[in-house]
Write a protein that binds this DNA or RNA. Structure first.
Lengths: 221, 221
DNA sequence: GAGCTCTGTTTTGAATGCAAAAATGAACTT
DNA sequence: AAGTTCATTTTTGCATTCAAAACAGAGCTC
């Protein structure tokens, strides 16, 4: 198994919440499961620590990173900035074919909204945002975006998605698609910022906080 | 020696250009120099690879990453976005004391400009930009910024800093300080973007490209 | 009975050893 | 002489080993 693959598999385990935030990472167990020895496992853990997904405590092993409200806020803030930048760049560089693909994904997502299928809706949502970042044509940006969204997503949350909020989100997405089609970079950046600000408010208002007593209620498998 | 320290020392070696871009990283030699064995060294190299400073080639060792024109452009683009975001946030959160400190650093830098001391000027310049990022009060942002600027700086370049360009840069810095003092986030973001765009143009126009034949002329020790 | 100390166990972090892959280079072919 | 092939050397990547640090728990002190 290649180094990157080891990193990705452990990342997936963390993102899936299989090792909950704050929990110790069982070195020996993971070694057996991935059928590797401690050396490559530890290399991967250091990489993930640099990414912010794992916390290393000298002589006390590694734990799955636990996010505070502040961390979450910071991550959203940066995510906003990155998406806004991606939106602007995407408008300059996106091809008609890419716009069509995003329009299709958007229609798909709206359909899931109509069916009130939250999971599929989220999936479609994510695909659109990722497509915009990809369309920006900047791998450095894409890399940072992936790292930030991974950390956010790792804290699996379910916001109490009210009908109003959901409707608003869909409306915003329509505006996003519209701005893209008009290739209105500045407008798109603004909409994306507002969109994420709303998302953040939802999440934080829902009482996100990965503290001892408060992390079970909001987590889904 | 602690893990992070190993990473930092190797990072410093790379940033200092002691191992030029594209060059093989001599594992054995570095081990002797840092007085560590291969295990911790290799852990550090994987971390630096995740950061983008080192390139790992399976079964062929690691090399100091080499940046193309495109990489450089991408890095500057992201850097612009991050600084603009930092500027906006800083205006919301910066304390009077921090503003005073930046004003002092600015005066210092202007003095170096008057003395035409480019090295000191660059140093002061960097300190101001870093202070703004710090003032944004967002460690996630600060971390990404550090990673991006490290990669940019690693490609040590000397742009043919003409009198006009230098004067313009100083003028822009005055506007930056001014916007900060007025706590004009949007304005500051704009100025920072323009400032970095100019910087990028300088660097790229100067013919940056870490290709085989073209990497000596522009590098300083 | 609460708290401290000391000892045995576990776990961590790093050095070493070993198998496999790549680089080197000498001999050979054309 | 240029290119190819094969054996030798070097380097890489990982498993294992080893010392030191943290942990756990029994016994001791007060």
């Amino acid at each position: 198994m290649l180094h990157d693959e080891v990193v990705n598999r452990i990342r997936a385990i963390l993102l899936d919440g299989e090792i909950p935030p704050g929990a110790r990472i069982p070195e020996r167990e993971l070694c057996e499961r991935l059928e590797i020895s401690r050396t490559p496992l530890r290399e991967a853990l250091k990489v993930l620590a640099a990414e912010g997904l794992v916390q290393l405590l000298p002589h006390r092993g590694s734990r799955a990173a636990k996010l505070t409200d502040k961390d979450m806020r910071d991550l959203f803030e940066v995510c906003q900035g990155l998406e806004a930048l991606a939106g602007e760049l995407a408008c300059e560089r996106i091809s008609d074919a890419e716009i069509d693909a995003i329009a299709a994904a958007h229609a798909d997502m709206v359909q899931h909204y109509r069916e009130r299928d939250l999971i599929q809706y989220y999936r479609g949502n994510r695909a659109i945002h990722e497509a915009i970042v990809t369309a920006a044509g900047n791998p450095v940006l894409a890399g940072l975006y992936a790292s930030v969204t991974a950390r956010i997503r790792r804290a699996r949350y379910v916001t109490p998605m009210t009908a109003q909020r959901w409707a608003l989100a869909v409306k915003e997405h329509e505006a996003i698609l519209n701005a893209l089609q008009r290739r209105d970079g500045v407008g798109l950046a603004h909409i994306l910022r507002a969109h994420l600000r709303h998302k953040r408010e939802e999440v934080l208002q829902a009482g996100f906080a990965e503290t001892e007593g408060n992390d079970v209620t909001l987590r889904i498998a």
